[in-house]
Simulated scan of single mutants.
Amino acid sequence: MQRSVTKSPDDRQQRPLLALAFAFFSVGLASLSVVGLGRAISAELHIMASQTALLVAAFAVIYALAALLVQSVFGHWSRRRLLITGLGILSVGLLLSAGAGSFALLMVARAVTAVGGAMVGPVASATGSLLVRPERQGQALATVFGGFTVASVLGAPLASVLAPTIGWRGVFLALAGVGLLGALLITRHLPPVVSGQRVTLNTYRQGLSIRGVRSTLLVTLLQMAALFSVYAVAGSYLGGRFGSSAGWISVTLLGFGLGGIVGNALSSRAVTRFGSHNTLLFTLLASAALVASLLIAPTVPWLGLAVFFLWSACANMFQAPQQARLINLHPAERGLMLALNASILYLGISVGSWLGSGLLPHLGVHHLVWPALLLLLLAAVIGHHGSRSASPATPALQ
């Protein structure tokens, strides 16, 4: 009986971490679900199907900029207030998206949604790292970022399934409800956490001047650009390279998302056993090897599924130790470090999407992965050199 009423500190930390993960889940759905709504939106608003890709790019660019500005304008707010406000703005943006009567208004609504998301993502990660003992920070970061990983699995497929039934506007309404539920969970389960500080231009300059920070952020940019240079055009790539039918493409994208969940779940264990540096280096080199295999793999759809699953698993093992490394480089400004990482992460999504859509007509499906391979190898070299030459302020987070 005693066991049912007595909870360890780790037990008490789990609900706040799950609430933060759900908040990140809300951001991920708002960001990625639009991929599954492209055809429905283009048909109703009478635009080219390719134009809907701008809805992803616009979100990514605005998020990248807003993640930095939020720290300057609202960095001194309590983390709970910032998260609830961000989820509220996110939901407002989704409601505006549901009511948009033109593509231009929909783009504006996406910008509002991105600002709300930028107030949530980096703050959720920073808050999660403050709720646990230092030796468990890697696990906490993996838990919180796991919300985004799950959204990457459910977002586009769920939206594409729901759109014929409730319409793309109905999907945006439902996503707004998810955002409001996230705000409620934060209100109920997040304990008081020390507030951050308003970040000035000088703070950014000092943070970026710390040895290892710029190279670490560059690795994030290269890793995400490599991934999205193929993923952004996954349908066209899989169909042309592996002869995948529409059904196989859907299954492969689902496998890609499931691989992300597996990789995120394994990341904290890998860091605990092998350390952040070795884990990061492994994810980059393993990803490069998988991309190289795409150059020689036979034209069989199930091979495309297998490689995409494994690449996603490796890619999602990357984020938790990368965030932990940035916190370790500048523990006093963890919110700033994670905001910079989130900004660069979404910038990498934009760069990769632009590379994929721009290079596919010129390189063709058989050679499209060459840029991704080169980006990953460059990231591995920079990451290895930067990690060895950096001087962290505290012992490396494991």
Rank of each mutant, 00 (worst) to 15 (best):
341 N>A: 11
268 S>E: 07
290 L>R: 15
364 G>N: 10
342 A>K: 07
239 G>A: 14
268 S>R: 11
240 G>C: 06
275 G>F: 12
329 L>S: 01
262 V>G: 00
261 I>E: 03
288 A>Q: 01
323 Q>E: 02
248 W>A: 14
234 A>R: 06
356 G>Q: 08
275 G>Q: 09
280 L>G: 10
274 F>W: 15
269 R>P: 11
307 V>Y: 11
351 V>K: 02
270 A>V: 00
292 A>Q: 11
339 A>V: 10
324 A>N: 12
314 C>M: 15
349 I>M: 15
290 L>S: 15
250 S>C: 09
319 Q>K: 05
284 L>W: 07
282 F>C: 13
320 A>C: 01
256 F>V: 01
307 V>I: 15
231 Y>A: 04
267 S>G: 14
301 P>R: 10
235 G>E: 13
285 L>Y: 04
235 G>H: 12
357 S>P: 01
324 A>R: 09
280 L>T: 11
333 E>N: 14
291 V>G: 04
244 S>I: 09
268 S>I: 04
236 S>H: 14
241 R>V: 10
325 R>I: 07
310 L>Q: 04
264 N>D: 07
236 S>M: 12
247 G>C: 06
246 A>Y: 11
251 V>Q: 09
326 L>H: 04
237 Y>E: 03
275 G>P: 01
270 A>D: 01
352 G>C: 06
283 T>P: 00
325 R>T: 10
267 S>P: 11
251 V>D: 10
298 P>R: 10
289 A>P: 09
266 L>S: 12
348 G>Y: 06
319 Q>M: 13
268 S>G: 09
269 R>Y: 14
361 P>I: 10
262 V>M: 05
262 V>D: 00
303 L>Q: 05
242 F>G: 00
330 H>T: 06
333 E>W: 11
347 L>C: 15
312 S>Y: 03
275 G>S: 08
279 T>R: 10
253 L>M: 15
260 G>M: 03
302 W>P: 05
240 G>N: 12
308 F>P: 07
348 G>T: 03
236 S>G: 13
358 G>V: 04
259 G>N: 00
314 C>W: 09
249 I>F: 07
280 L>A: 08
268 S>W: 10
313 A>W: 04
